[in-house]
Amino acid sequence: MRQIILDTETTGLEPEQGHRVVELACVEILNRRVTDRHLHLYLNPDRDSDPEALQVHGLTTEFLSGHPRFPEVAQQLVDFVRDAEVIIHNAAFDVKFLNAELRRASLPPFTELCAKITDSLMVAREMFPGKRNNLDALCERFGISNAHRTLHGALLDSELLGEVWLAMTRGQDSLLDEAPDDAAGGAGAGAAGALGRFDVSRLPVIQVDAQALQAHEAYLDGLDKAAGKPCLWRQLEIPVEADGVAG
């Protein structure tokens, strides 16, 4: 499975107001391993950045004037993301800018260039509702050092997001990581085949003791009190019949 972590920096917030992409970076993940392949481009936007945007990324008009314009390097992006799943934090923002740049270069929309777009921000919000889920917060949550991130930069942010993404989704693939490679299909033979080869008898069975169950019920009581109604966990509980079999 080939995935691409993508990030952009821009001159402002709205491409409809003439704002442009000034930096673009893509980092490749292959079979859940970050590879040494990446694409990193600085772009001449032919305009100044808004003061707020300049404060975020620090890319001056003078610096960017010595770099190519997007149409000159657009094919590099097309080739790099082709047929891959592209993972972007707050994807709607980056995709609207990429679509505007691709339109100027007479190329198809970004959604037609890659196999799939996944918004890691939406995934994080589902995993951690009500929490801060920007890149800095996620780095802190997963113990990923971002001390060197004094300014936003597309390549650095892509590298950090790659680490965050693998940490966020690690539980989904823990069984697959244990499975041996298929002799015919190799490591990419597919999730179904890998699960089929996994020896479930190797999984540890952990019994829940009475103290843990009591603590769990007390925690749910607190949720019920805070919400003023039964929490979702209790709403979804399946009643157990007297013979011990769920009905």
Rank of each mutant, 00 (worst) to 15 (best):
W165T: 04
A91W: 09
V164T: 08
A191Y: 10
E112W: 15
L64Y: 11
Q235I: 12
G228Y: 10
K131R: 12
E241D: 02
I117W: 15
D182K: 09
D177G: 04
P15W: 13
P71G: 09
R20G: 01
N90R: 14
L156G: 03
V27Y: 08
G171A: 11
Q76M: 03
G222K: 13
E112R: 14
P68G: 03
L203V: 09
D181H: 11
T169S: 02
A210N: 02
P71E: 03
A92P: 04
I144A: 02
S120G: 05
V56C: 10
H152A: 09
G143F: 00
L236W: 12
G143M: 00
R197Y: 03
D224H: 10
H40M: 00
E217K: 12
F128K: 13
N133C: 10
G143L: 00
G58M: 08
S158H: 14
M168K: 10
R125M: 11
E9P: 06
R32M: 14
D50S: 14
N134Y: 06
P230L: 13
E101M: 10
A187P: 01
V21W: 07
G171V: 11
L121F: 09
A115S: 13
R202A: 06
T150D: 02
L13H: 14
G66F: 14
D83C: 12
R33I: 05
A74I: 05
S174W: 07
Q214W: 12
A184S: 01
Q211M: 05
T118A: 13
L43C: 02
P51V: 15
A167E: 01
E126L: 12
L59E: 04
E101S: 11
Q207P: 02
V200D: 00
A189S: 04
A137F: 03
A218Y: 00
V164L: 03
N134L: 06
R125C: 09
T35S: 01
E112S: 15
L24E: 00
Q235D: 05
P239M: 08
V123R: 11
G228T: 11
H57V: 11
L232C: 07
A137Y: 05
A115D: 07
G12E: 04
R33P: 05
A115T: 10
R20Q: 06
